[in-house]
Design a protein around this nucleic acid. Structure first.
Lengths: 200, 200
DNA sequence: GTCTATAAATAGATAGAC
DNA sequence: GTCTATCTATTTATAGAC
């Protein structure tokens, strides 16, 4: 048997990166450690030197996704200007675009199956993401109490994840169904949500 | 080997029913023909006498789900009284409850992988469901043009599916997270959506 | 129409060589 | 730290007996 080129240098990071690509293409159900290994041209045993099992690899991916998503949200909010409502609204589109391209959003970051691992980095990154979103929600000024801010945050997540799911599953077939088009619809729905909160 | 009790009488219908139970428990990703067969105590070969393959079984389940969902929607809308906005709003809760209990909603009924089958019963049932929802949307009176009615329908689906997904994946942890509690939140979000449309 | 038996994939995970 | 090789389990689907 011809031996493979041996080592890789930075397999752990590459496994995480290849996992994102696989998640974006096939979703969580199509994700497998073996497929990730094949993508990188390494043996199916190699990943287990870096991660105890499938869930620990997924948890590392989820933690990085939470960090990346928070970065994109901060950056898109800043690019949206100084109006705090618009800053909050655009992040719904940010979520749709990021998760469609990277394959990991709330359902991975807060997956019930990963919660049992109590991975400190994942827990911390998830909390930071929620903290950031809550701050943006409060800054809109349309949620005077903590309860209202949490409801606003919940509705924001529902809109973003709802558009993403219906887009992925082929339910949305009318109008501009490009990823940017769907992201803009999520943002527009969130603008309406803010108007409704302001009028309440 | 001890031979099994032989025939079943109505295996086709029982396969569909057992598929619902499995979908509700494990989701689309956990669904397998073999598991459905085991649930019923029949051999894993039996289903293939009634359905060409996995997707044809799923298509039959999806078609029945569309019919059942339309029935529930009609029935819950009628139970909500004569206010057309309330009739529309409660169907978001109907969707959440039905799909959580039966395991098959828009992502199964309109699944891209099943669209290629062009199953006439599924296509017809899907159209009837959308037609019913569009009628309820138009009757609210807050969507004066067909375009607005379609947008209202889209937002309704986004809210219902968004709450369902975030509930299933463990994102919603605050307040009453019972199924009825989540369904009521989806209905309340839809009431706000209607107010926003009325004020626009 | 249901069964037994089986083939061919694929997955998760481990042992032991290098 | 990566490899080869292997084990066990599962799935989709088919062939052929009854």
């Amino acid at each position: 048997m011809a031996r493979r080129p041996y080592h890789h240098g930075n397999l752990r990071a590459e496994l995480i990166e290849a996992s994102f690509a696989l998640l974006a293409r096939d979703g969580l159900s199509g994700f497998s450690v073996a497929q990730v290994a094949r993508t990188l041209g390494v043996s199916t045993a190699s990943p287990y030197r870096h991660f105890a099992d499938r869930d620990h690899l997924l948890a590392a991916v989820a933690a990085q996704a939470a960090l990346e998503l928070a970065d994109r949200i901060r950056s898109d909010a800043d690019a949206a200007g100084s109006d705090p409502r618009e800053r909050f609204a655009v992040t719904a589109g940010t979520y749709v675009r990021y998760v469609a391209r990277r394959g990991a959003g709330y359902p991975v970051i807060f997956a019930t199956s990963l919660a049992g691992l109590e991975d400190p980095e994942l827990v911390q990154a998830g909390r930071a993401l929620m903290s950031l979103m809550l701050q943006l929600a409060q800054e809109t000024g349309v949620a005077p109490t903590p309860e209202r801010a949490l409801l606003l945050l919940e509705r924001h997540g529902v809109i973003a994840q709802g558009y993403l799911t219906l887009h992925r599953e082929g339910f949305l077939t009318l109008g501009d169904v490009s990823l940017d088009g769907i992201a803009e619809r999520a943002t527009e729905a969130t603008r309406d949500l803010l108007r409704a909160f302001a009028d309440a």
